[in-house]
Design a protein around this nucleic acid. Structure first.
Lengths: 158, 158
DNA sequence: TATAATATAGTCAGAGATGGTCAAATCGTG
DNA sequence: CACGATTTGACCATCTCTGACTATATTATA
């Protein structure tokens, strides 16, 4: 029964039991479970996704690591998923600005932060054919939304 | 695991904590850390780059030295112009992130704001052919920089 | 002074150490 | 069987560190 992925998931969650974050070596963990390193990525993608309330941070090269942070359960959990879904693959400028406005109303971002987000997805920033614009805006906005929720966690690095 | 580069970076920043510049011997420093002298150059290139607001000055031969100076802008306005000029029509991800890093070091943006800016110009956000990426990133970053300084206008302690 | 010796620092290609991505193979279950 | 979930492996991306070779400045010496 116990699929490899489930074991790895449980293992990681045990490591996190007291802390709400854990740092690990991808290759070490893979070796510990005798599996391919990419298996770890699979577990992270399916069991520790942003939608499920986890943030993954990593670094390559010597001294590399993978850090998993569990977001505190909060109003945001469902909101983020809902927002990401609403953005989907393409979004107009108006809709994007509306969404950002909503974040300030909820006190999830400061006015300054909202200003930056608007600057990033505004039409001035996106010098591209109109058709491409909405798609690109969606990609950027998704990134920004995720970042907003990371910020709420009081991140450890910059 | 604290990488050698990270230790060297921290060491140098401690030396600079009060002064905004420091002078050191490359070989001495390398010996102190038990590494190859060129390692020092690596740290300088990656952690004390011009994008991050540092200027390196050095001299070879007997009595040679390496001097690291942190640039401190007098007026926000001048800095904005300088940054916009440096962005120009195209900018790499590294350079963009370096610039954002500089803004946090100068306390012009909070860590959260820097995170948002990085999210807006990171490669994950810009799903485009590489050649187009830098140009688009430049456009977005210019917008963000302008917004940063707009935000500063309303600040009491600026 | 001209030249050689010595003392520094810089550059760059490549090795090593990690982690990431993606598509194909495999597994399990309705 | 069909189909989604899992697992793997080949190939890619990034970060760090070193060593051989190069460049430049100072000092000693003929």
């Amino acid at each position: 029964m116990a699929q490899l992925s489930d074991s790895i998931e449980r293992f990681i969650k045990e490591l996190m039991c007291e802390e709400n974050q854990v740092e690990l070596r991808r290759n070490e963990l893979a070796q510990h479970f005798g599996c391919a390193p990419s298996q770890i990525n699979y577990v992270l993608a399916t069991r520790f996704s942003i939608e499920r309330g986890y943030i993954i941070d990593s670094r390559r090269g010597g001294g590399g690591y993978v850090r998993i942070v569990q977001m505190r359960p909060q109003q945001g959990d469902n909101l983020l998923s809902a927002l990401l879904e609403r953005v989907d693959n393409s979004i107009s400028e108006d809709a994007a600005l509306g969404m950002i406005y909503q974040l300030t109303e909820l006190d999830l971002v400061t006015e300054n932060e909202a200003g930056l987000m608007a600057a990033a997805v505004g039409k001035n920033a996106l010098a591209l054919p109109v058709s491409t614009k909405d798609v690109l805006r969606a990609a950027i906005l998704r990134n920004l939304l995720t970042q907003v929720f990371r910020n709420l966690e009081g991140r450890t690095d910059a």
